[in-house]
Design a protein around this nucleic acid. Structure first.
Lengths: 247, 247
DNA sequence: ACTAACCTATCACCTTACGTGAGAGTCAAG
DNA sequence: CTTGACTCTCACGTAAGGTGATAGGTTAGT
């Protein structure tokens, strides 16, 4: 029968010697024999088992579970793989959301000439179209398209109401700055702010948090809010993040 | 200025007290003041910083790097986010590949199971389980095991080729039934059948003869072959016995 | 048989981002 | 002044190994 030293097996399988030591320690892969001097010697079966271990390991399955899979003959591999696939799909979805959030943040960072509020402020629905070209270079076209669609669907009076709502929210918030951002009254206003943003595009908690972050990191946003009151940007930002927890 | 205890801040931000201790330890978020009794008290700025931390943390950015981002004024956030996005995209791609691998594996498991039943037994998947027991009594479990092992090692396309070969052989044989089983053309097809069986286990003349016998005595095999043409089972069986003389 | 070069063994601490107590001190309320 | 809630600082545990340190084993060439 074949006989491999730790290093040989490690090289064959493309893992480190330490890894083999580790697998021995946790009982996942014990060498076929141990020499007088405690040297580990593996045989062909061990190599085969190691290959299987690596297959499952590549799927990001914890070593403990790999051990169960390999050691119990009647382990339902099919079920285990299905289960693991679900987890991976969740992970993938999560990562996709993170990427979307970064995209959102990047777009807003890039947007140094105009921020969201400035863009729509004073623009009538008819002017929205003219703005579209310029905006598309700056924002994700999806978001802009969605935003534009929604604005275009508004009547003139609705649009005016939306504009006024923005101003109202900021004024009211400025009055509440003696309270904590987590205060119920403040949160009620943040809810209005959240709804207001909803006029333009679908807001997820991640996006809302990202927006909160922008309010304090981007001078443009900060300046806009601080027009109403010094520190309003920070105040609103805190309130938004607190609010986002409950969305 | 606001003053929060560890627990209060933890609750506000939705993290554990231990987390705040940890952030203090690693210097990521140090409380504004420490009381006589070493109690931590945070203020509004700390809350703001914590919210920033959580924003980046959600993006799966390591705490050490979050510290750099927040502490160095000239840190290029834009670049950092772009970089991190790339990493996330890699991660996403990797996860996608893992899912694909699992899908592939699942498909092979399924194919193997179904076709194993269909080809060996001509039985529906539902009856497969029951038949397996029966089969093991009739065949040596060694043979069944060997067969399974070989099938399990095939790739999907290999397996599909094997399936197609089976159908091809039977169709061709059915066309040759006007000849004698010892006819050269028939024997050529029997050779292919012999090779095909070799996909599953090592075939000796004795085993091949035994299989020939089984094709006409076991109704299951008989039914399977007679799907192609009435009497194909007997015809093939005769051809196999003749072929076995020369192995 | 001797030595250099290489291989292997067993500790044992380090990594991430905290969780989970243990034991002791502190604070606000009754 | 006690009770209960809160807080403090160790300090070990997690997963899957990385990275030495130190000591002993094997092998090839001489």
């Amino acid at each position: 029968m074949e006989k491999f030293s730790v290093k040989q097996l490690a090289k064959l399988a493309g893992v480190s010697v330490r890894t083999l030591h580790h697998y021995d320690e946790i009982g996942l892969l014990k060498p076929a024999v141990r020499s007088e001097a405690k040297y580990r010697y593996y045989n062909g079966d061990d190599l085969l088992r190691l290959q299987q271990i690596m297959f499952y390991r590549e799927l990001d399955i914890p070593l403990a579970q790999i051990g169960e899979i390999l050691d119990s003959k009647d382990f339902n591999i099919h079920e285990a793989l299905l289960q693991h696939k679900k987890e991976l799909q969740k992970r993938k979805k999560h990562v996709s959301e993170l990427i979307a959030t970064i995209d959102n943040t990047l777009k807003q960072l890039k947007n140094t000439k105009m921020n969201y509020n400035e863009i729509y402020k004073g623009y009538s629905p008819e002017q929205a179209e003219a703005y579209e070209k310029e905006a598309k270079e700056r924002w994700s076209s999806d978001r802009v398209e969605e935003s534009k669609q929604r604005v275009m669907k508004m009547t003139k009076s609705e649009w005016e109401a939306v504009q006024k709502e923005s101003v109202d929210i900021n004024i009211e918030l400025a009055k509440l700055m003696h309270l904590s951002p987590q205060d119920e009254k403040v949160q009620t206003m943040v809810q209005r702010h959240f709804n207001w943003i909803g006029n333009f595009y679908t807001v997820t908690p991640e996006i809302y948090r990202g927006l909160a972050n922008m309010y304090i990191t981007d001078e443009r946003f900060k300046a806009n809010y601080d027009k109403y009151a010094e520190g309003l940007a920070e105040f609103l930002s805190e309130g938004m993040i607190y609010f986002a927890r409950a969305i």
